[in-house]
C-alpha cells in the first residue's frame, strides 16, 4: 500500500519537497517513524499530523488512498 504524505511550511524546508509517497506503512505511527528516520531534523520541530483532514494524536490505521499531512505552525505576517 502506498500512502501520500504532504508537507507544509517550514517542514518543506527540511524535507526539500512538499509531497512524497511511502510504501507499506499501515498506520500513522509507522509513517511518522519513517519520516523522522529519513529527516531526523524534524524531531525538534513542532507539527500536527492529519489523516483525511482530521488531526490525529493517537495511532490511526491507514486505508488505501489516505493522505497524511504534516502541518507546522506559521509565524509570518
Amino acid at each position: 500500500m502506498k500512502t501520500e504524505v504532504l508537507f507544509f511550511g517550514i517542514i518543506v524546508d527540511i524535507t526539500g519537497k512538499n509531497r512524497m509517497e511511502i510504501d507499506n506503512c499501515k498506520d500513522t505511527f509507522s509513517i511518522k517513524t519513517a519520516i523522522l528516520n529519513e529527516f531526523p531534523k524534524l524531531n525538534s520541530y513542532k507539527f500536527v499530523m492529519t489523516v483525511r483532514n482530521q488531526i490525529v494524536s493517537d495511532n490511526k490505521i491507514l486505508n488505501n488512498g489516505d493522505v497524511v499531512a504534516f502541518l507546522p505552525p506559521f509565524a509570518g505576517g
Binding site: I10, S44, Y45, K46, V48, I55, P72, P73, A75, G76
Partner: peptide, 14 residues
C-alpha cells in the same frame, strides 16, 4: 488547542 506551546526560537524563523 492546535499547537499547545510555541516552537523554540531556533525553529521559529520569525
Amino acid at each position: 488547542d492546535l499547537f499547545p506551546v510555541p516552537p523554540s526560537p531556533e525553529q521559529a524563523p520569525n
